[in-house]
């Protein structure tokens, strides 16, 4: 479904991502893990067109998407959430999702100016769509509150709702469980599973090992910009290099 081949990106001489390759299978959950600064978020940014790779290719359903702009990539069906939440805090919860669904709207500038009948009907259907998603994510009763007022965990969910509103085929989640309490994490994991059952393909960057190992079908471990190991979780967990890199990191964090 999504294939990344020999992806390389450097910033001012510093190689952030070095010949990274992996494949995300349709209907699976692929997790990118690795210590801080391993290049996971950079990979996300490359896939979503925020920055462009120096070398390598990104294929989505066989189509090269290397040079596309973020909005074009989103339009193809690749949607993402942000590690540091990027909600539209000046809009309500429902409106955030409505903006997510906007790209399918056919109402142009001129028609909006003259408010042709389609405009309001369009708005109705956007709102209904948004409410459907909010119900799914258990955010319905926050619908008319400013997004900035939501509790942190709910803000994360709202980011997912907004990404889903674009009707993606692949959902890229950048540390979806960061800042959630164990209970919330578990609920999130359950929800992500249901998304896969609905036919979405997920790629996530995650720190929380427990979530990753229980959730992911395939794990790609990164360290210093390169892929250290990849495979099913059980396999990867046995890999000595991974243990060295990862446990070393965990110990540091514990200090």
């Amino acid at each position: 479904m999504l294939e990344v081949k020999e992806l390389t990106k450097s910033f001012g001489g510093l190689i952030a991502v070095n010949r990274v390759s992996f494949k995300a299978r349709e209907g699976g959950i692929l997790a990118l893990i690795g210590p801080n600064g391993a290049g996971k978020t950079t990979v996300f940014n490359l896939i979503t067109g925020v920055s462009h790779p120096d070398e390598g290719t990104i294929l989505f359903r066989g189509q090269r998407i290397n040079r596309l702009q973020p909005f074009q990539i989103a339009a193809l069906g690749i949607s993402r959430t942000f590690q540091n939440l990027e909600l539209f805090t000046n809009l309500t919860v429902a409106e955030n999702v409505m903006v997510g669904a906007f790209r399918k709207s056919r109402v142009g500038f001129l028609r909006s100016v003259f408010r042709r009948p389609g405009t309001t009907k369009e708005d109705h259907s956007l709102y209904r769509e948004a409410m459907n998603l909010l119900v799914q994510l258990g955010l319905a009763h926050y619908a008319d509150q400013p997004a900035g007022n939501l509790p942190f965990g709910q803000q994360r969910l709202l980011e997912i709702a907004r990404a889903l509103a674009t009707q993606p085929q692949i959902l890229l989640l950048d540390e979806p469980a960061a800042g959630l309490n164990p209970n919330e994490s578990r609920e999130l994991a359950v929800f992500l599973r249901t998304l896969v059952n609905q036919g979405y393909t997920l790629i996530l960057v995650e720190h929380d090992m427990e979530t990753v190992m229980s959730l992911a079908d395939e794990v790609v471990v990164m360290n210093f910009g390169t892929v250290l190991a990849s495979g099913v979780p059980a396999e990867v967990q046995q890999n000595t290099e991974v243990i060295a890199a990862y446990l070393g990191d965990e110990e540091e964090e514990a200090c």
């Binding site: 973020p70 989103a74 949607s79 942000f82 805090t89 903006v99 906007f102 790209r103």
Partner: peptide, 17 residues
């Protein structure tokens, strides 16, 4: 209004800002 708060996020949901 959305673009105003986060252009990045608006682009990420497919809006040609």
């Amino acid at each position: 209004k959305a673009i105003h708060t986060s252009e990045r996020a608006a682009e990420a949901v497919g809006i040609d800002t």
